[in-house]
Every structure is written in structure tokens, then in C-alpha cells.
Nucleic acid binder design. Structure first.
Lengths: 307, 307
DNA sequence: ATGTTTGATACGCGGAAGGTATCAATCACC
DNA sequence: GGTGATTGATACCTTCCGCGTATCAAACAT
């Protein structure tokens, strides 16, 4: 059975005349009769009682009259929704957000987007950077707001903002009191780090700077989220570089110190799969870029290692 | 757009592989690609992001995935309901009933039918004989329970039961007291008759018997339903032949008298349009005939004038 | 009796659906 | 890093089916 059969049937059922129905369909009458006949044979049921002078619906025909209208309406709706989706007016955007990016600025952007694109359902997922990259790879996410580096090629990104990396220690740690930190201060220091499975490469810049000055801190504890990491640091389990904006809310027992000169910056980037042509996503990216325009520094070359 | 497109699209969207989808559809891969391409062009929207190694849904594709399932499910449901309708398991039966036929016996038959065919919706319409014939002609009724004669050819019928015609008078009418009625008693009597537009030909037998005996009663009042007719008679507006079963409920002021020998019988028949092949209707007729089997007298030739 | 109207039938054409062979691009694997 | 395997796209051909024209048979109108 094809929609053509239903369209033809509906015309005949409504006109109760093959001739008039054919006219309405801009079709000759013989092929119309043939199509109806074919439909009846396929369904194994007579749909019309025909004489040479009258056409009447059978029981089966009466039922199909109801059903055909439903099917055709559903098909019509499908076409309309496709067109809307293609304009980016409806659809779903699955967006991954790392905790530090879930701030007021992003909330305002989301709110503005929803005001303009009420038909686009935003599905926000609170995921760590590595998890987002994996989700992007598996096409379970349309856009990720996360930290570099990118996990695999086939990704495009745009830089949104960056925040300096600072050192987090407990209040009773010697480095909390030292007047001015130097890279070699971190030699043989125990580090409280995010586990690579949730954030990979985050510490590369820090460790490289240490290495350049001959300092070799060592991994001591791994956590899976930022708040646990800060909690462990405040409990004296070690030190760690972290992003300045993350720990702004004054946490008791925690001290944030500026790193020595040439401190790494921690960018937030928006990432999506290359070649994804989604008008809704394009619109969302426009809102994102505009929302961060006062802080973002557009760059042609990636300001950090990719991959 | 045809259902084929949606079936093909659904396979590709679910498999996310043209090759696997083609396999599932028992189809070669190139025509499948061509069909999807054609669908995309017709809708004016890309449905898949394809590389040589991966197939991903676009926003529009994701929307169509939902919609295609809906449309195909509706089509599936349509086919199933057609088959059921063709077996007479679902559908609607529009049945006309004259008031005198709306009795306990018919109610029991209707109840039994509904128990066996719960999917068939019975639409009962309280209509006079002539109205039913008109409704049958216009295909607004599937079966009529009414009185002869039939209004036009193209009708088939089955005899269900009959009841003797009796005379209705008011209690103070001379004929109410006469010991034994003769046909010539009705000469010059005013008749209270059902209007021909609601019951046509009902009085033919009575008037013919009168005429054979030289009696000529005359039409005096016309009513449009039985209860008004009996009310007028009880009020002394005239006399009328009526069906014995109609006036059983003792109405004050009304007297029913047996007619002279060779009194006409009043049949109840079930009527439908010839050539109507409706399994549900066939089943209903079976229930009807069985329900009246103790009183009906099957006959090959019509026991009354047709037309 | 004749003409008109209606659905069915016969038949031919064109286009679209489907099959086969093949290509280009990418991935896996040694 | 070259090579074979896999995947979707392309080219080309065949088949079939949807559609049009011409015509018929039946029923109604005149």
C-alpha cells in the first residue's frame, strides 16, 4: 500500500464517483479505477460496491475512509515538520556542558535562544569534557561546551572564553603562605587531579611549565568531579592547578594563589562534529558567539594543541 | 512522498547504514540510495549527513524519524482495521426501526449481536417506513426494519413476523359496541391515517377489502406517528385499522376490535439494498432471522406487493 | 429507440524502481 | 605506510508499473 492509493481512494470515497474523483486528481479515469482495484486486491477486501451508475462504500471502505484521512494527515504533518526542521525552527539540540561552564552568562544565552526558537528543544547534559567528546563521537550530542584538547579529528570548535589557571591549596599548606610562587615550588608536590577519563590533558600546560623549571610534582589522588577535587585539596590531600572561575565561591579551608608568570590559560570552547549542517545548531552557535563576544578572541589558528 | 520512501528512510535511520538497511529491505543498495536522495530532494531537506564511512541523521532526519514511525504505524493500523472490517468484526451498521418493531424481542436480538460483535457499532435510527426507504436509497442506512411495501427496486428483504390488522375506535363509538364487525360497517367512516410520507401503502389491504364489499371510508385526519394517531382515535376523531401489537398497552378511551374475516396481516420485514456485500450485515441478518425463526414463515415469493 | 453517462477493459508509452558493475574515499591491518 | 576491505555514490541497463487514449457494456434520460 502506498500513499497514492490512499489519496486516490479518498477522492473516490468523497466524490462517490470515479469520474469526478479522477478529475479532482487531474488524472484519467481508467488508471484511477485500476489503482483502486489494485488496492482492493492487495487488501483482500472490496472497498466499493459499484454499478455502472452508482458507487457506494462497503463496510471496509467506510473504515478505510476514516483511516486514510488519519494516515494522510500524518504524512502531511510529517512534511510540514520536516520543512520547519530544515529551517531550524523545530528539532532538538543536545548540548553538553561542563560544570564550570554552567554559569549565569550561559544561562542568559540559553534563555535568549529559547525565546527566539521556542520550537527547538534544548537538551542539556552535565558532562565532563572527555565524556562530551565521546558523546559527540557517538552522535549523542550536537554541541559540547568543554575544555581542550579535542579528543579526535572531525571536530570543529570555536573559542568562547578563557580563565587563568591558579593554584589551589589548603589554608595550612606552606605554599598558601609563601609570598610569591615559583614553578620549582611544585617539585615533588602531591597533586589532586581530575581523572583522565573525565578530563584529559587539562594539566599538560601546568606540568610542562614545571618540567621547564626542573620541577616534577606527582599525581597523588584522582577525582571525577571538581567539587571532590577541591574538597580533597582543602582537606590537605595535596595541591592542584585549577581554573580561577571554578572555585570562586569561598570554600572554607581552600586557598587560591596566582601561578608564576607564563601561567596557562584555561579556555572554554564550543565543539561540534565537522560537516554537521544543522540550521538550529548554526543559530545556537551564533547566539553563543554573540553572548561571549565581549570576551572571546576570534582566532584562525587554534590557541592550544588540538587532538 | 510515498510510504515506500518512509519505509526506506526508517530502515536507513535505524540501521544508520545504507548497506544494512538495503539488506533488511531485501533490496540492492544503489536504488535505496537513489530513493533517499529523491526523498531529500522532494522535501527540500537533507536527511542524512553521509561520509563514505558513516551515516548520521540531520535535525530534519531526526524529526522525520519520529514522524515516519507515526505515519507507518497509522498505515499499518489502517490495513489491520480493513481486514477486520472485511471479516465483519468491526464497522458500523446503521439500522432503521419503526416504532412498532422496537420491542423486547428485537432488543434481545440486538443485545446478543453486540455480545458477539462488540467491534461493530450499531447505530439505530427511529424512522417510519417511508423515511427508511428513502434513507436506504441514499445509502444512509444499511438495513431497515419496516412495513411493506418496498418503495423502489434494488431492494432485498426478508420476512420477520406479522401481526393481524385490527380496528381501533374510541370507547363511545358505535362500532365499539357492535357484536360482530362487517366490512360494510366501515362505509363513510372517517379514517385517522398515518401520512403517506411516513407510511405509504399501509392501508391498501384494508381499503381493498372495504371496496370489495362496497364500503368506502374516507380519510379524515393524517398524523405522522402512531401515538398521535391512537390519541386522535381515542378522542373520537375517527376510526382506523392498526396493527394489533402496536396498541397493546391499554390506552384509556381506546377499543381494539377484530376485523371481519380475511383481515389483512401486517408484516415486519428487514430490508437492505441488493448487492450489498457486508459481512457484518450478513451476520446481523442471521441474528435477526434466527431471533424471529419461531414466527417467521420463509417464503420464496413475496407475500405482499413489492413496489 | 437513441444518445448520454459511468465504470471497466484493452493496449501502448514513458518514466521510475530496481539490479549489476564499478568508482572514490576511508578505515583496518599487517 | 602500503594494501585490502568496506561503504556510499555513480553509471547504465532492464523491468515493470502508472498513466493516457480508445473503446465497450450497462444503465439512465430523452
Amino acid at each position: 500500500m502506498e500513499l497514492r492509493h490512499l489519496r486516490y481512494f479518498l477522492a473516490v470515497a468523497e466524490e462517490l464517483s470515479f469520474r469526478k474523483a479522477a478529475e479532482r486528481l487531474h488524472l484519467a479515469q481508467p488508471p484511477l479505477s485500476a489503482q483502486i482495484k489494485g488496492l482492493e486486491e492487495e487488501l483482500g477486501a472490496k472497498l466499493f460496491e459499484r454499478t455502472t451508475r452508482s458507487v457506494r462504500l462497503t463496510q471496509a471502505g467506510r473504515v478505510l475512509l476514516e483511516e486514510a484521512r488519519i494516515v494522510l494527515a500524518a504524512a502531511e504533518r510529517a512534511e510540514q515538520r520536516i520543512r520547519k526542521a530544515d529551517l531550524g525552527l523545530i528539532g532538538t539540540l543536545r548540548i553538553g556542558v561542563i560544570r564550570p561552564a554552567a554559569n549565569d552568562r550561559l544561562a542568559a544565552i540559553l534563555r535568549r535562544f529559547r525565546d527566539h526558537f521556542s520550537g527547538v528543544q534544548l537538551i542539556l547534559r552535565d558532562l565532563a569534557s572527555t565524556e562530551q567528546l565521546e558523546a559527540l563521537r557517538k552522535d549523542e550530542l550536537d554541541l559540547g561546551l568543554l575544555r581542550p584538547p579535542l579528543g579526535f579529528p572531525e571536530l570543529d570548535f570555536v573559542f568562547l572564553e578563557e580563565s587563568p589557571m591558579v593554584l589551589a591549596t589548603s589554608t595550612d599548606h606552606p605554599l598558601a603562605r609563601k609570598r610569591r610562587l615559583e614553578w620549582k615550588d611544585f617539585d615533588k608536590q602531591p597533586l589532586v587531579m581530575m581523572h583522565p577519563t573525565v578530563q584529559h590533558g587539562y594539566y599538560d600546560g601546568f606540568l610542562a611549565a614545571c618540567a621547564r623549571c626542573g620541577a616534577t610534582p606527582y599525581p597523588y589522588q584522582y577525582t571525577h568531579d571538581v567539587s571532590t577535587k577541591l574538597w580533597l585539596i582543602s582537606a590537605g590531600f595535596g595541591i592542584a592547578p585549577t581554573t580561577a572561575t571554578v572555585a570562586e565561591s569561598g570554600r572554607p579551608g581552600l586557598v587560591l594563589r596566582d601561578l608564576p608568570p607564563d601561567r596557562p590559560m584555561v579556555p572554554t570552547i564550543a565543539v561540534w562534529k565537522r560537516g554537521t549542517h544543522s540550521p538550529a545548531l548554526e543559530s545556537f552557535k551564533r547566539f553563543l558567539i554573540e553572548g561571549f563576544s565581549d570576551v572571546s578572541t576570534p582566532s584562525t589558528a587554534p590557541p592550544f594543541p588540538v587532538g
